[in-house]
Design a protein around this nucleic acid. Structure first.
Length: 119
DNA sequence: ATTCTAACA
DNA sequence: TGTTAGGA
């Protein structure tokens, strides 16, 4: 199928699909016309990519992780043990980011509370 | 009609 | 990412 059909079947814009290829997430074949040709497997691949992106992984990480993930129901099962370690690490970074944002919010609250009273 | 690349009020 | 120009 060409990019238009894959876009319809996945709900992903053609723009994004071309971007995924640029990032090495998809390797569609090319017709002599230059048109990209995708296989049925790519529909599932895009599904996995979306889940991984939603989990906050970078395209670079996804490129490595993609072949290490099992495609079952609507979930992704990590296969390689290295992958699990990487995901646990990623989770830790998310916790750090949450803490930093909480601190930033606290600082903002101080300013908001000081408003009007200072004048 | 569709898709392609490149580029940015 | 959207969008658009300019081609095939």
């Amino acid at each position: 199928m060409r990019i238009g059909e894959l876009a319809r079947r996945t709900g992903i814009t053609e723009r994004a699909l071309r971007y995924y290829e640029e990032q090495g997430l998809l390797r569609p074949e090319r017709r002599p016309s230059g048109y990209r040709v995708y296989g049925d497997a790519d529909v599932a691949a895009v599904r996995r990519i979306r889940i991984l992106l939603a989990a906050g992984l970078s395209t670079a990480q996804i490129t490595q992780v993609l072949p290490c993930v099992l495609d079952d129901d609507g979930l992704l099962a990590p296969l390689c043990p290295e992958l699990v370690d990487a995901l646990v690490e990623h989770r830790a970074k998310i916790d750090e980011a949450i803490d930093e944002l909480a601190a930033t919010r606290a600082n903002l609250d101080v300013i908001i509370s000081a408003e009007a009273r200072s004048a």
